[in-house]
Amino acid sequence: MKKAKLFMDTVVDIQVVASGKSADRAEAQIDRAFAAFRQVEQACSRFSPDSELMMACRQFGTPVPVSPFLFEPLKFALEVAKWTDGVFDPTVGGLMEEHGFNRHYLTGQTILSPSAESVTYRDVIVNERDRTVLLRKPLVIDLGAVAKGFAIDLAASELREFDGFVVNAGGDLFAGGVDESGSDWEIGIRHPYHKDQIVQSVTVSNEAVCTSGSYERKSAKVPGTHHLLHPKTRRSPNVWISCSIIAPFAMMADAMATAAFLLVENRGKTFIEQTGTKGILITPALQIVTVGGI
C-alpha cells in the first residue's frame, strides 16, 4: 500500500509491505504516520507566524515552555552545533531570511523577523528538566536541517509492525525491514543535475538516507547563493554539490548531511567517520567520494 501527502514543502510518500495486515489497519497506521509530519510542521515551521517555533522566537530573555515536537529537534540541533564548533548552527534563520528564504510554500506569505546582528547557537539555552527554551538575543531559529528527519523518525515508529516500509519525504527517507520481494531496500541517490536520474544507489534496511544539495533551493536575492549557508562566512560553500548520509535515524542523517556539506572537504569526511555514519559526497564535476565503508 502506498499513499502521498504534502507536508513541510515536500511530497511525503509512505509505502508499506502489509502482508498479513488488513487494508484498513495499514491505512490507519499510514494516517498516524502522516499525523507526525503535521505535528512537527506545526511545531517547527519557520515560515508560519503561529508555529510554536516562531512564537518562541518572539520572546527573548525569558524561558518559554515548548512541546517535545519542538524541544527534541532543537536540542539535537544544538548538540550538532557543538560538535561542529558552530559551523552547523540553527540560529541561521535571520541570515536565511535576509537571503530570501522566507516564503511560505502554501500561502506565499513572506516573513522578516527581527534578529540581532551577531548570534550563535550559544544564544539558545534549553532546559531539559522544565523543557523550556530561552533566547539571549532576538534571533530566528531554523530547524530545516533536523525537523524533516525528526518527522520521518516519528512516522517510522508508527510503521514498525509491518514487514517493510519506506517513509520518503522528498528524497530524505527511512527504509524499514524488507521490500515486497523480501530483500533489503535499494535506494537511489538523485543526480544533482538531472532530477529524474540516479547517480548512485545503496542497499539499506532499518536505516535512513538523507541528502543535502546546493541544487535544491537557490536564492533569488543573492546570486550564487543556495539555502546551505555557512553561519561564519555568511556564504554558501560549493566544494560539494550533494552530500548524502546513511545513519540509524533520519534526524541524524538529515543533520549530518548538512553539517558535512558545510564543513567541506577533509573536515566533512572526518566528521562523517567520527560520527559512525556513512556518506556519499559528490563534487560539482560529479566526482563521487564515499566515506565510512560504503
Rank of each mutant, 00 (worst) to 15 (best):
P223I: 07
A77C: 11
V264L: 06
L143Q: 12
G276F: 05
P49K: 01
S183F: 14
C243K: 12
F69K: 08
E158V: 09
T290G: 12
H194D: 15
G94H: 05
A247V: 07
S242F: 05
F150H: 02
V40L: 03
I152T: 04
V119G: 07
Q39D: 15
V167W: 05
C44S: 03
V202T: 00
S113F: 01
E216Y: 07
F37L: 02
Y193N: 15
R136C: 05
K278Q: 08
E117R: 11
Q197P: 02
K5H: 14
S48W: 14
P223A: 08
I282C: 01
G268S: 09
G144V: 06
D254N: 13
Q15H: 01
Q59I: 14
I187T: 05
F249D: 15
C57V: 01
A36T: 11
A147G: 03
Q42T: 04
P284W: 13
P65I: 10
V239A: 09
I246G: 08
W83P: 00
E79K: 11
L262H: 08
M55K: 00
Y215H: 06
Q59W: 09
V264M: 14
L143M: 11
C57A: 05
V119I: 00
G144E: 09
V291I: 14
A175R: 08
H104N: 14
F71W: 10
R25V: 13
D163M: 00
A250M: 13
K278H: 07
P248F: 04
N168R: 12
V119F: 03
Y121L: 06
R235F: 02
V209I: 13
E27K: 04
F37G: 10
L286T: 06
Q274G: 01
A257Q: 06
T225K: 15
L106P: 02
R217L: 10
T132W: 05
K148Q: 15
H226P: 00
S212W: 09
R131S: 08
Q59C: 13
E207I: 03
Q200F: 13
L173A: 11
R32T: 01
S115G: 01
S212V: 12
F162H: 11
E186V: 14
R235D: 12
A285F: 08
K148A: 03
H230Q: 11
A81Y: 11
P223R: 00
V199P: 03
E161D: 14
P223H: 07
D179Y: 13
I246L: 01
F162I: 12
V167P: 04
A156I: 06
H99W: 08
A260H: 09
V222C: 10
S214W: 14
S212I: 00
A56H: 12
R46D: 03
G164R: 05
V178E: 02
E216C: 07
A155Y: 03
I241G: 08
V66F: 09
F101T: 07
A116W: 06
E79L: 06
G176Q: 01
A145E: 02
R217A: 14
F162V: 03
A250P: 04
Q200R: 15
D89L: 04
E98D: 12
L159S: 00
S19I: 05
